[in-house]
Design a binder for these strands. Structure first.
Lengths: 239, 239
DNA sequence: GAGTGGTCTAGACCACTGT
DNA sequence: CAGTGGTCTAGACCACTCC
């Protein structure tokens, strides 16, 4: 795209006005500005459609399969249709104490020890991650399996549901709360979105079969290239 | 809040810089600017949580109840906990021909006659609607019941699922695709959000028990005060 | 009429990129 | 080095609201 000084000259507007107009294009994710280089029209990016409802059931069914099969594909591949080789995966583990927000989410006291896991998954063709994920598990629930306590075994074949299975936990349901908000500065950088492009922020809460909250995750998606898909199946009236 | 000229003077910054800073506050929905009057800190608004999964099953169950009971509450009340008296309801009906997008969504030819219904629902305490909804039904599917063809009978006790019931349609499932995007200028005005605050845009597709798409709706929510809540219930491993 | 937010101009300096 | 986008200043006019 022509530089803003050039556009200002050719349009007869001031540079500020031109920059203001360009800002609108950026908010729609149509154009990317790279300091020192120029402003570029974005490839009309395919929105990644994340099929949440089916994904979780699929993950659960997969838990009982053997490891070779679990290893073949992960959740993100299931969503995107990409193969394992197309994806870069990054995981980081740490331990934190529950703040007020997390304590309330788990229904546990403030200060409870939590395992905090940070994930990001990227397509090898795009530099920016498809999502950032911050997952929390109460340390006590998972400490019985020491392999769950460090990132050494990531990506874990079968995902979180299988990890929980190894410590005797079966999920009953998953609640997801979807919000839209402007990105924090570091999120904007990690996800490679222009400031002004919103993110989709999903608070995912997993309940086990005893109705206990066993995982809380905050997942952040770039708003300009993500679609979240939910299916509600209704009970029949008569049979 | 102090006016921008006053802030500029007291902070030693230029007015442009101050206005730029204020713009950030607006993107977070923390502050509202009213031309000619001033800039005001927003009441920390309760986010409306829309419990989608439960709502649709609840609506379906309600279809078979008698009219008095159906009349008592609607879907929005179910979500928000507000009573019928707290809500203002607006409906508008028209007929349109399916454009390419709608034709694809229904799997019908371009030009098929559709009933287009525009809804907005507001809380009586806030001027701005909680959501804008554009619902489309193939005219042929509903023409058997002439009461469905005009807005005279809105709000219809029992909602869309009951309307469809009157022409022999039972829903099997509802798919919802959630996106975030900047508001169009008229949406920003209707929803009373600052430009820069994203909207949540839900494309809702309803399938009947013969796997036919019978309703497509686009629902727009203000991103700074809406939460969409979805529950995925998983099948048990053993019983 | 005074003050507000919205819009615009003209010009400046900076850090960064490419060659 | 020249050119880019990012940031900032100082000043202008407008439509609007409120008194």
């Amino acid at each position: 795209m022509p530089g803003d000084t050039e556009l200002a000259a050719s349009s007869g507007l001031s540079r500020s006005s031109v920059r203001n107009a360009i800002r609108q294009l950026r908010e729609w994710g149509l154009v990317r500005a790279e300091p020192g280089r120029g402003t570029y029209v974005r490839e009309p990016r395919q929105r990644i459609r994340r099929r949440t409802t089916e994904r979780y059931q699929w993950e659960k069914d997969r838990v009982l399969r053997d490891e070779a099969e679990r290893r073949r594909t992960g959740g993100t591949e299931h969503d995107t249709g990409l193969t394992v080789d197309d994806l870069t995966f990054h995981a980081e583990y740490s331990q934190v104490e529950a703040d007020q927000d997390m304590a309330a989410a788990f229904g546990l006291p403030v200060g409870t020890l939590l395992l905090r896991r940070t994930y990001w998954t990227s397509s090898r063709h795009e530099t920016a991650p498809l999502s950032l994920s911050y997952s929390y598990l109460p340390y006590d629930y998972v400490k019985a399996n020491t392999q769950l306590l460090s990132a050494d075994h990531e990506p874990w074949p079968g995902g979180t549901q299988h990890q929980l299975f190894t410590v005797g936990i079966e999920l009953d349901r998953i609640e997801e709360v979807v919000r839209a908000r402007p990105p924090l500065p570091d999120e904007a950088e990690l996800l490679d979105i222009e400031p002004g492009v919103a993110v989709l922020d999903v608070r995912k809460t997993s309940y086990d079969t005893t109705d206990r909250v066993v995982e809380v995750a905050d997942i952040v998606f770039p708003g300009d290239r993500t679609e979240l898909c939910f299916t509600t199946t209704l009970r029949r009236w008569h049979r």
